[in-house]
Amino acid sequence: MSETEYLKDAEEREEDIVIRAIDVKRHYHGMDGNVTKALDGISLDVLRGEYLSIMGPSGSGKSTLFNMIGGIDSPTEGMVFIDEIDVAQLDSYELAWLRCHKIGYIFQSYNILPVLTALENVTLPMVFAGNSPNEAREKGMAILETVGLGDRALHRPFEMSGGQQQRVAVGRAIANDPVIILADEPTANLDVHTGEEIIELLNKLRDERGITIISATHDMKMLDVSTRILWIRDGKVQRLEERKNLNIEIGRIESE
């Protein structure tokens, strides 16, 4: 598809697009003049309310793409729009605002702040958003109920299991009603059963709140609930497929 065709096609779907990457390139310049092309021209539209899984071997540019569309890295060339905001034009304050209000992050290793309680972890983004402590506390409790940790509000991370910590992370991610949740291998450190619970939770949030979920994962169960799956290789889109066109069987190793 040529670029004009691509843009025209995208324009028709305008209202549904939550992230648009246009010919994104990210080059790293090495010491000896070598240029590493982590991303080599990726165009991608992510639709509102979809569940997109990104796959790719390590070194494929998966994480780089992930950072680009999460507003935590900016492209060398090309443009990224998050909810119609051009990321490249934002200064550090505006980026902080974008990350605070539009995006929720979930990490592989939870990244719950160890010094704060579950409730404090969930309310922190709301405080950054300028909510009063009382508002934040009320909303925080409601969110902890949603993620199934209503009785653990005052526990600290080291008193909780990995699954519970990841639930806190999910709660923290949805604290400011984001448009997008970015999940970087959210189930990689969890056992199968706990991982499933987290996937169910994410899927529930997508259904109920229309949050777009983008995750980097190798977890078959996550691919199974995805709407689309994107394969990245050598900084390029290798394949982009609707879930319904794929035959995923849990428990079997996928052959591409």
């Binding site: 550090s92 902080a96 605070c100 990244n111 702040l113 950054f128």
Partner: peptide
């Protein structure tokens, strides 16, 4: 990592 996380949550410099 903690600082990075804080910034992801919207903490300003």
């Amino acid at each position: 990592r903690e600082i990075g996380t804080l910034k992801c949550l919207g903490a300003t410099d």
